[in-house]
Nucleic acid binder design. Structure first.
Lengths: 232, 232
DNA sequence: AATACTTTTTCCAAGATTTTAACACAATAT
DNA sequence: ATATTGTGTTAAAATCTTGGAAAAAGTATT
């Protein structure tokens, strides 16, 4: 097997150097990023095995970085942060982080946690090779960039429309119930949510089916819910 | 899915109580052990989903417990220890632990780490691809996608028709009484329901037997009910 | 504060599904 | 053979669901 590739996201140069020299000394390959945007870019283009992420980045909240990456990947993310409050840890872990270390951290502990993470990965070595780009017919979704295209033309989608589209795309071919969809988007399922859902479906369809000849991306299953069908 | 079962290994009664009441309040099932020997016994006999392990046990070193359990199981082990030295953490993690919390710990953090662990476990077990697909002759039902096919052509079924088809399919070869069927579909069994049932059977048959030469998926058993027969 | 944009609510015609009713025919019992 | 009961089929009626317009409410931006 190949050497483990680690993406180090840290804007403080000295700390970053400490980490990279340590990694190099212990036979890891690594990439670096100094801010959230490049972190997401590197993560989507190089598919690292593990990500070490500092929460205090200059351009965006680290939590947002976790959320973005989790939209397409299950790569282990270990947070390394100066914030030691419980609430910070809880928020990061619930956003999708796998582990949380507070600075100043012990290099030995970091290495041990890396080994533990590697060991765990080796167990379930299935890795469905999730790409950060989804394609179906003329529709294309770039999860890492957070935008969708219809034959090279970018779709202007509102946040909920985008979420909805991703949900349907991730379950291509499956019929999703109203309840499942509303649960995923609003976190609950009240009477009115289904009415809202219908409106969003209508606008989404208007945007999607604008350019396609007859093709129907979203199908209704009366009394059940909706699904995205495979095209071509 | 079932509630997560957690084995709590802790010899200090008050701490153990704190943990178990917390777990109970958050909808976990749990087992307890006060020493290493019973911990290993419980782990092997009940196959918990996660183990919370205190390193300071009366009868043996917690590290030994980790090693023993790791000889046969990859169950996630989260250490909860008073020892906060790096070397302790490194030793435990390298012995096979998945995470390490030092006392006194925040209950919220523990819960967040449990959620993170559960999430990680759930990743690997996504859809063994088959299992949720039923096949009989030219008929195919994809339960997880919620749709049915007759020789690659999708059947357009209303919710009740689909339910009915699934009910028959799941009891392939068995005769189902009218009462059993109506109970399953409407939750009750009134006089009129059997009349409705006949109508649904008719439409279902029309859709099913359209494409098959002579084959009869659904058989009538006069005075009793219906059954789906195995084809080919 | 004004503006643009997004989300939610309300409504109803159009559409789809389910139920009911009617009748011919098949099976069974007397 | 005849009566009785059960079944398949069709069509209309009743009911429920959906799409989309339009307005109201809520947010973000300038």
């Amino acid at each position: 097997m190949n050497k483990t590739l680690i993406l180090v996201v840290e804007d403080d140069k000295p700390v970053q150097n400490l980490m990279t020299t340590t990694l190099k000394a212990h036979d890891y390959r690594y990439l670096t990023a100094m801010n959230g945007e490049t972190a997401i870019l590197e993560a989507s283009s190089h598919n690292p095995d593990i990500i070490l992420l500092d929460l205090g980045l200059p351009d965006m909240d680290g939590i947002e970085v976790i959320r973005k990456i989790r939209t397409w990947s299950n790569v282990p993310i270990i947070i390394i942060s100066a914030r030691s409050e419980d609430t910070d840890k809880v928020e990061a872990l619930d956003a999708g982080a796998d582990d949380y270390l507070t600075k100043p951290f012990s290099v030995e502990e970091l290495l041990a946690r890396l080994r533990a993470t590697e060991r765990r990965m080796a167990v379930g070595q299935t890795e469905p090779i999730s790409s950060s780009i989804f394609v179906n017919g003329k529709l294309r979704i770039d999860y890492s960039a957070g935008c969708a295209f219809l034959e090279d033309e970018e779709l202007h989608l509102t946040p909920i429309e985008y979420k909805l589209l991703c949900l349907l795309a991730k379950n291509l071919g499956k019929v999703l119930t109203h309840t499942y969809i509303t649960q995923n988007i609003w976190g609950h399922s009240w009477e009115n949510d289904v009415a809202s859902l219908r409106v969003f479906m209508a606008t989404l369809r208007k945007k999607l089916d604008k350019n396609t000849d007859g093709a129907q991306y979203i199908q209704t299953h009366v009394g059940i819910g909706y699904r995205m069908t495979r095209i071509e």
